[in-house]
Design a protein around this nucleic acid. Structure first.
Lengths: 214, 214
DNA sequence: CAAACTAGAGAACGTTCGTTCTCCCGTCAA
DNA sequence: TTGACGGGAGAACGAACGTTCTCTAGTTTG
């Protein structure tokens, strides 16, 4: 068995176990048993459990990002693309093994003591934020909306992780659709006012989705 | 020093340490040092670390619920009450020690291996859901909105926990305000249609906030 | 064939940490 | 005063677990 295949095999086992029972809940012996590899070789591939943990998270995150992108790009319409994210979440939530976002869970477990894990979580979440931002910009909407959608995605994952089921994704999708409509409505109103009157800010809820910096 | 005072002292130390470094990241020795109590007495109060962990979570959750209720009830208007939740979150996020929702973190850390912690998380989140539901009903809005607001609160806590700062609360509040408006708008539209025509469902985004069961 | 390398199985090591035990002291009741 | 007792300090115990080592066998290479 060649290097890469073994590595993948170990990471498969690690992902299944770490995700399912938490990193602390899984010993290196468990990884050995599940991957059918010797401890010696395991440590040859990953010099410490920490390395394996990070490799697991990195691979998982990369794969899920890719899956998300593929799913989103099946749609043409910018609004559909945004809503497709929630459909993708919904399909993930149907997996009975779904236990929430691996990075959120790992952040809760290790974020306080491992800079590497905390950094991974931050970088991935920042990526999600930026991805949403790009989709929102492509839809001609203000970027503040992207952060609101971001909050919805994270919240849906947490709730689905704790309770299971797709309802959180469904509700988040509904909320996202409403926010899209309301924001577009507000944007139109503002444009109307701008052309008809002056360019001063418009009172009301759409003010709240304007840029806030981060 | 009497029983209750010592117990509170231990729980204070436990909360500070467990919340800040995670349960696994804190040893009973650390609790002893931080609380200034002997291991013997500590184990007299809490026969195992697990008990202490659960007591910490229970006390924290009870206190925060109470704080939330007090804050919300400062307002009269039903909509203001709902939005007050996000102001309360925002104020919590300003604490530099804020590291996210203790239950979400603990669920990530222990939920897979401890039924007690998983149950605590579920019960508390269910309480939040119900609390939001009551507020939404009091505002004369459909309960589906409550679940959407719930998602926003959980998402905001996650993002604030990872990145810090109040922005997540601000954005969540904005989204909540938009959802309130849009839902009320839709409810009015539906009522108009109902009185003018028949009672059939109305197409469009407000369908999505109708009941879905759980 | 011989030598060297790889890898498996599993014992062994060392540390961490939850938990208990020992020893001692101060307090209070008889 | 004495004896019982609660509590403190910290050593000690034992299990879990990350990591390494030993021993063996098979395989490859000259």
């Amino acid at each position: 068995m060649d290097h890469e295949a073994v590595r993948a095999q170990v990471l498969d086992a690690a992902e299944r176990l770490f995700y399912g029972r938490g990193v602390h809940g899984v010993g290196m012996d468990d990884i050995r048993d599940a991957s059918g590899i010797s401890l010696k070789r395991l440590y040859g591939l990953f010099p410490a459990k920490e390395h394996l943990t990070e490799a697991y998270l990195e691979r998982r995150v990369a794969r899920l990002r890719q899956e998300l992108i593929v799913h989103v790009e099946e749609y043409e319409d910018p609004d559909d693309r945004i809503l497709a994210i929630f459909d993708w979440l919904s399909s993930r939530f149907t997996d009975p093994a779904y236990r929430g976002c691996a990075l959120i869970n790992s952040y809760g477990e290790l974020g306080a003591t491992s800079d590497a894990v905390a950094g991974l979580a931050r970088r991935h979440k920042e990526w999600v934020r930026k991805y949403l931002r790009d989709l929102v910009i492509a839809a001609g909407l203000p970027t503040g909306l992207a952060d609101q959608l971001w909050i919805l995605t994270e919240g849906a994952m947490v709730i689905a992780g704790i309770f299971g089921g797709q309802e959180a994704a469904t509700q988040a999708r509904s909320a996202a659709a409403l926010l899209l409509d309301a924001t577009r409505q507000a944007a139109r109103t503002r444009v109307d006012h701008q052309t008809a009157e002056t360019a001063t800010g418009v009172a009301g809820s759409e003010m709240t989705v304007s840029e806030q910096g981060h």
